[in-house]
């Protein structure tokens, strides 16, 4: 559910970001090309939301996140995060947010993992007892006990990501940004990261904004999904809403008693035939599944059937390929 501006911790209005690229034109001349990486994005994120921010490569996801953290300054529009203008009060904002870049670690590369956590206590000036309590809780939740004394450069990717998550949260930020937190992780590490994020969101009330290419992240974690392409928001709603809107097709898969040519069912399309099995696609708005099944049963003997819902992967592929 999209939050009202009253309890919004992130409030973005008409945010745009233009980059000037210099392209070679002729031997010495260079031409200026203006690229709109983010184009008029408005967004409001309520306290405690877990928002998935998705889009194809180069859609403007990372640029958006960088503006919300105060790294980049927008070309136009206004941003307020945790009550602060990230552009003018970057340092103040930095205490209230945690940031994880999946591709780059914030940890001290050559030192034991434990040392990074201790250093961050000083950098963020976290009171010692508070830090110790958070540290103990995260070490437990992320199961880091066995590699706390290993230098960061020797950690596996999954271990390092757990370390980075802990590092981003030790100062009790109210907002956590994650740019591709599960990139390159194996299935077990991925699910551990997801469980941890769900826990941090539920127990600590941390607002989470996460960009990802892994749609199973989104499906398991996010109550709300913002899809961005060519710098523009093309969808903002729940996962169920996006499936309704873009995933209007459902498919009945039937196993018939005997192989017959493709069935012709009113308001439906038989998209595939494989022996006795047929795939019959219909628009959820045109007919109900029950009436489709009834129509099939009227013309053929059905041994077994299943109804396939659109999965998020298909939905998003459709959005990406259909948007201009």
């Amino acid at each position: 559910m999209s939050a009202t501006s009253g309890d919004a911790v992130i409030q973005v209005e008409h945010m745009s970001k233009e980059f000037v690229l210099r392209k070679r034109a002729g031997r010495f001349r260079r031409e200026k090309v203006v690229v709109r990486a983010v184009d008029d994005v408005s967004l409001s994120v309520g306290a405690g939301e877990l928002l998935g921010y998705i889009g194809p490569n180069g859609a403007g996801k990372s640029t958006s996140i960088k503006m919300l953290t105060g790294i980049l300054v927008p070309s136009a529009g206004s941003i307020r995060v945790a009550g602060v203008d990230p552009q003018r009060r970057r340092v103040e904002l930095a205490r209230r947010i945690g940031v994880v870049f999946g591709q780059r670690t914030q940890l001290w590369w050559d030192l034991p993992l434990r040392d990074s956590f201790d250093l961050l206590r000083h950098v963020y000036r976290v009171p010692a007892e508070r830090h110790a309590a958070n540290f103990a809780s995260f070490v437990d939740l992320l199961d880091m006990g066995s590699f706390l004394d290993t230098p960061v450069r020797q950690l596996s990717l999954g271990q390092r990501m757990r370390g980075d998550l802990c590092a981003a949260l030790l100062h009790d930020p109210s907002i956590l940004y994650l740019d591709e937190p599960t990139i390159g992780l194996d299935v077990v590490s991925k699910s551990r990261v997801r469980e941890f994020l769900a826990e941090v969101n539920a127990e600590r009330g941390v607002t989470i904004v996460l960009t990802t290419h892994d749609l199973s992240d989104v499906e398991r974690l996010c109550s709300r999904l913002v899809v961005i392409d060519h710098g523009r928001v093309i969808h903002d709603g729940t996962v169920a809403e996006i499936k309704d809107r873009f995933g209007e097709f459902r498919t009945v898969v039937v196993d018939l008693e005997e192989a017959v040519p493709a069935l012709s069912i009113p308001n439906c399309e038989t998209v595939r035939v494989d022996g006795v099995r047929q795939w019959i696609r219909f628009r959820r708005t045109d007919v109900s599944a029950a009436s489709v099944v009834a129509s099939i049963a009227a013309v053929a003997k059905v041994r077994d059937l299943a109804i396939e819902e659109p999965d998020i992967e298909d939905v998003v592929t459709r959005i990406y390929t259909e948007s201009p």
Partner: peptide, 28 residues
């Protein structure tokens, strides 16, 4: 919230500097 949202004092900065530089020396 006991979080330090004020600006660090010069003393605190000196302390943070020592801690960070010390970490670099240990890393090197």
């Amino acid at each position: 919230m006991a979080l330090a949202l004020d600006k660090p004092t010069v003393r605190e900065l000196a302390h943070i500097y020592r801690v960070m530089a010390g970490a670099r020396i240990r890393a090197d």
